[in-house]
């Protein structure tokens, strides 16, 4: 599915760190920060469900999904570390408006928001599969090495979200909650596909093989019929009022500031010289 504009791009897994051009490295960093921030913030939100999910089993399952996503964030942050960034610069002391995650993952859950968690993980996990698949033949070899690991875990996530969707949608009241969550989240989910500043260079360097537009198309072709199949009404993507916060350009909803304050608070209070690393992927 190569578009014409990256036909001259470097071949799959042909680049290592020392082969990057200065522009290529900037583009790679932008791509990695985007990926890592999506995973990290999504996981951070999901952990709010711990001890509050409807049953112990669903609690464990969602905590497990969150743990996997933190693991994926680690995969991408480790690549940034190899490019010279410290973990503090990547996360704990990274200015909130330098974060380029989609606004979908920063949204707070509604008070009775299990349907919100289900819709959100579904929209996110389908998107994640599509974008990981578009990275399988990335030109950057260290990235190519890691994509497979993340892809292997995503299948469970989608299956989990779909199973819940199917069951909640079969109940009238639960379906109404799903619909409310979808109406809230869908405009923010579209920000998954907004280009960032370095999109042209990301394609030119062969870092990602597909355009965001075609990935967005594939995502819509998957999620829209599925959600409609469960009796939900999906807002027309091109007629939605786009939220002012774009996510990918560092602008975010107010909820992000609170979340950021919360997860960086301990780091600021403890004032480590270096953040502790529990377990790293030393690939």
């Amino acid at each position: 599915m190569n578009g014409g504009d990256d036909a001259d791009a470097p071949a799959a897994a042909s680049l290592d760190r020392d082969d990057l051009t200065p522009e290529g490295q900037v583009a790679l960093e932008a791509l990695l920060f985007r990926l890592a921030a999506d995973e990290f913030v999504h996981a951070e939100r999901l952990t709010e469900w711990q001890i509050f999910a409807p049953t112990i089993e669903s609690d464990l399952a969602l905590a497990n999904v969150a743990q996997d996503e933190f693991g994926h964030a680690r995969l991408w942050y480790d690549l940034l570390r190899e490019l010279g960034y410290s973990e503090e610069e990547c996360i704990w002391r990274r200015a909130p408006d330098d974060w380029t995650h989609a606004t979908l993952v920063e949204r707070p859950f509604a008070d009775d928001g299990w349907g919100d968690a289900v819709v959100r993980t579904y929209l996110y996990d389908v998107a994640e599969r599509i974008r990981l698949e578009a990275l399988v033949d990335t030109s950057y070899a260290p990235l190519a090495d890691r994509v497979g690991k993340a892809l292997a875990e995503e299948e469970y996530h989608r299956e989990h979200a779909l199973s819940w969707l199917e069951r909640l949608a079969s109940d009238d009241e639960a379906r109404e909650r799903l619909q409310a969550a979808l109406d809230d989240l869908f405009p923010h989910a579209l920000s998954l596909w907004y280009p960032g500043e370095h999109e042209t260079e990301i394609r030119a360097a062969g870092l990602r093989r597909e355009s965001l537009a075609s990935m967005r198309e594939e995502w819509l072709d998957t999620v829209v019929p599925t959600l409609e199949g469960y009796g939900l009404v999906v807002p027309e993507p091109d007629e939605i009022d786009r939220p002012a916060a774009r996510g990918r350009d560092g602008s975010h909803t107010d909820a992000w500031v609170d979340l950021y304050e919360a997860f960086t608070a301990t780091h600021r209070e403890v004032d480590f010289d270096r953040p502790a690393r529990l377990r790293g992927e030393e690939a």
Partner: peptide, 15 residues
């Protein structure tokens, strides 16, 4: 605890 076989299989994997 699970409502049906599919969910039981999903939960059992994790638990």
């Amino acid at each position: 605890h699970a409502p049906d076989r599919e969910m039981a299989k999903l939960f059992a994997q994790i638990q």
